[in-house]
């Protein structure tokens, strides 16, 4: 379990979270390389299907990162995203999966540190949870 390196997908909105990730880079702040970003125009674009499919395809954790509350470039896409993430978490619980594998975070474009912090926290959480239950044999693969 010690050597488990999770695969993590972060759906980041163009205006805040993706910019914050670039900011973390320009300040040379490190965070786990497990996190791979997929850019979306708004966190509100991220469909429940995208979250579920990411887990199905092999992600050990997925999170959506959008603008701060009240700061969404598209007014309230981040609120919609959060509601969707909560629905998916409920669904996971019903399926017997850990709901913590899916999460929502908010940050502003200037918050490079916050981006790195979130990436670290989420990666730690997933490391504790272990591999995606749908990914049999994933532990051996990751450890090899």
């Amino acid at each position: 379990m010690e050597h488990f390196e999770p695969e993590i997908v972060a759906f980041c909105c163009h205006y805040c979270a993706y910019t914050a990730a670039d900011m973390a880079g320009s300040k040379r702040i490190s965070y786990p390389s497990n996190v791979k970003i997929i850019r979306v125009p708004c966190s509100g674009k991220v469909d429940a299907i995208h979250l579920m499919k990411a887990l199905e395809k092999g992600a050990d954790g997925v999170y959506v990162a959008g603008c701060l509350a009240g700061d969404c470039h598209f007014k309230n896409g981040n609120v919609r995203a959060e509601a969707r993430v909560n629905r998916v978490r409920k669904l996971l619980t019903e399926l017997g999966w850990e709901p913590e594998r899916v999460a929502m975070y908010n940050m502003s474009a200037g918050m490079g540190e916050a981006f790195a912090q979130v990436a670290k926290e989420f990666t730690e959480t997933i490391k504790k949870l272990g591999p995606n239950p749908g990914r049999t044999g994933a532990v051996d693969k990751a450890a090899s």
């Binding site: 979306v40 125009p41 509100g44 674009k45 469909d47 309230n76 896409g77 919609r80």
Partner: peptide
């Protein structure tokens, strides 16, 4: 172009171009 409608559409009848 935020795509919120595409994210919510139950019939998946809406697509956000480029995403």
């Amino acid at each position: 172009g935020c795509g919120v409608c595409a994210g919510e559409c139950p019939a998946k009848a809406i697509q956000l171009l480029a995403y």
